[in-house]
Simulated scan of single mutants.
Amino acid sequence: MCLLHAVREWDEHHIVCEALSHEAVDNPLRASGRLGVATGVEYAAQAMAVHGGLLAPAGAAPTQGYLTSVRGLTLYVPRLDDCAGPLRVSAERLSGDARLILYQFQLHHRDRCLLEGRASVVLDASSLAI
């Protein structure tokens, strides 16, 4: 499932993507005929995954990331599917290493923030000692 339409800009520390899939009636995250704003976390997670892929060394084997926590999540609207036009999905890498990364993310429609929060991503769960 790919929810993002395009990468608009990126560098070592951040990425900005565009999404159009929130308007699709066949969006796989819809429930009871609507797309709740909390599904925006998945949009942000996909932007983080794309960012990781863009930062990976050429020829490196892909790593599988796991979203391990979402903190400080603030939802400003009830749903995404009533926003006409593209959504802007941005993620900023706050810290991290080869195994664990902390991102701050936001979803905007035009100049309005729809949701924001922080997420941690584990890149290689088998490398973490329990």
Rank of each mutant, 00 (worst) to 15 (best):
Leu123Cys: 05
Thr39Gly: 07
Leu73Phe: 03
Leu55Asp: 00
Gly65Asp: 03
Leu4Trp: 07
Ile130Thr: 03
Pro28Ala: 08
Leu102Lys: 15
Leu115Thr: 07
Val121Thr: 07
Leu115Gly: 10
Thr63Asn: 12
Pro78Cys: 01
Asp82Leu: 12
Leu114Asp: 15
Asp111Pro: 04
Leu20Lys: 11
Leu55Asn: 01
Glu9Ile: 06
Ala45Asn: 03
Ala47Asn: 06
Val7Asp: 14
Leu3Trp: 09
Leu114Thr: 15
Val89Ala: 08
Ala47Leu: 01
Ala60Val: 09
Arg99Ile: 02
Leu102Gly: 11
Gly96Asp: 09
Ser21His: 11
Leu67Phe: 01
Glu116Thr: 10
His109Glu: 13
Gly72Lys: 04
Ser126Ile: 03
Cys17Ile: 00
Ser69Val: 00
Ala47Ile: 02
His22Trp: 11
Gly72Tyr: 00
Ser90Thr: 07
Gln104Arg: 12
His109Arg: 10
Gly72Asp: 02
Ala24Arg: 15
Val16Gln: 13
Arg79Lys: 09
Val41Tyr: 06
Thr68His: 06
Pro78His: 14
Asp111Met: 14
Ala60Phe: 03
Val50Ser: 02
Thr39Ser: 02
Ser21Cys: 10
Arg8His: 10
Val70Asn: 00
Asp124Ala: 00
Ala61Leu: 01
Leu3Gln: 13
Val121Glu: 01
Ala19Val: 15
Tyr66Met: 01
Ala58Trp: 09
Leu35Asn: 09
Ala84Tyr: 10
Asp111Thr: 06
Leu3Tyr: 08
Val25Pro: 03
Asp82Ala: 05
Glu92Leu: 05
Met1Gly: 08
Gln104Ile: 12
Ala58Leu: 07
Asp111Gln: 13
Gln104Val: 13
His5Ser: 11
Met48Tyr: 03
Ser69Ile: 07
Asp111Arg: 13
Phe105Met: 07
Arg110Lys: 14
Leu94Ser: 13
Ala45Arg: 00
Cys17Arg: 07
Ser32Met: 15
Arg34Leu: 05
Leu94Thr: 11
Gly59Gln: 05
Val25Ser: 15
Asp11Ile: 12
Leu29Pro: 11
Thr68Gln: 09
Ala45Pro: 12
Asp97Val: 09
His22Val: 04
Leu107Asp: 04
Gln104Asp: 10
Arg71Asn: 10
Leu80Phe: 05
Asn27Glu: 10
Ser126Glu: 03
Phe105Tyr: 07
Ala119Arg: 08
Leu75Pro: 05
Thr39Leu: 07
Ala56His: 09
Gln64Met: 12
Val7Ser: 12
Leu128Ile: 08
Val89Gly: 01
Ser120Gly: 14
Leu94Met: 03
Gly65Tyr: 06
Gly52Leu: 02
Arg79Met: 02
Ile130Tyr: 05
Val37Trp: 03
Val77Tyr: 11
Gly59Tyr: 03
Ala45Glu: 03
Ala31Ser: 12
Gly117Lys: 04
Val89Phe: 01
